[in-house]
Amino acid sequence: MDFLVQAIIPYILLYKYWALFIATFLASFALPIPAGTLLIASAAFASQGYFNIAIIFIIVLIANIAGDNSSYWFARLYGRRILSRVPFIQKILVSKDFTLIEKAISRRPGFIIFISRFEVISTLTINLICGLGKATYKKFLFFEVLGSFANVIFYIIIGYSFGDSWQAVNKLIGNFSILFFLVIALGISLFWKKILAKLKREIEK
C-alpha cells in the first residue's frame, strides 16, 4: 500500500470522523493526499462495522465542498500575488497559452470541474485555475457540489461493496489512474497545438 496512505490510515482509525474530515479538507484545499483511497478504506471499515456509512458520507461531502471552495477563494484573492513571486511560475501565468486555458475554462467550466473531482491533483489544479481566472463562482459552486457528490458516492460504493478486499481493488484503481493519465499526457503531447488553436478560435467567436 502507498506509503502516504499507510501513514494516514492509523489516524483515521484513532481519531475516526475528525481525522477523515481534516484529511479530506486538506486534500481538496492544497495537499495531494490520496483522499479517494482513504474514503474507500473508510467505507470498507464501515462495512466491517467500525464506522457508520451515513456519517462518513456527510462528513466527507462537507469536507470536500469546504476544501474546494476555500481553495478557489484563496486562489482568486491571493493566488496571483503569491505565485507571481516565483519567477518561472510568473512566466507561465502571463504566457499566452495559460491565458487561453484560463479563458476557455472560465467560459465552460462545468464538465472540467465535475470530472476533476475524481482525482486529487486535477482537483487542486482546476480549483487553482478557476480561482486565478476568476471563473463565475455560482457556476464553480454548482458543478463542484455535483462533482463532489458523485465522487463521494463512487468511492463509498467501491469501499463498501468490496469490503475486506478493498486493498486489492484500490491497487487496481491506482493502476488504472496511471493508465488514464498517461493517455491524457500522450493526447496532449500529440495534439497540443491543435487544442490551443481550437480554444483560440472558440474564444474569438
Partner: peptide
C-alpha cells in the same frame, strides 16, 4: 483470487 467479487450490491 476472487478479490473482485462484491459483498453487497448497489
Amino acid at each position: 483470487t476472487g478479490n473482485l467479487e462484491v459483498d453487497y450490491s448497489i
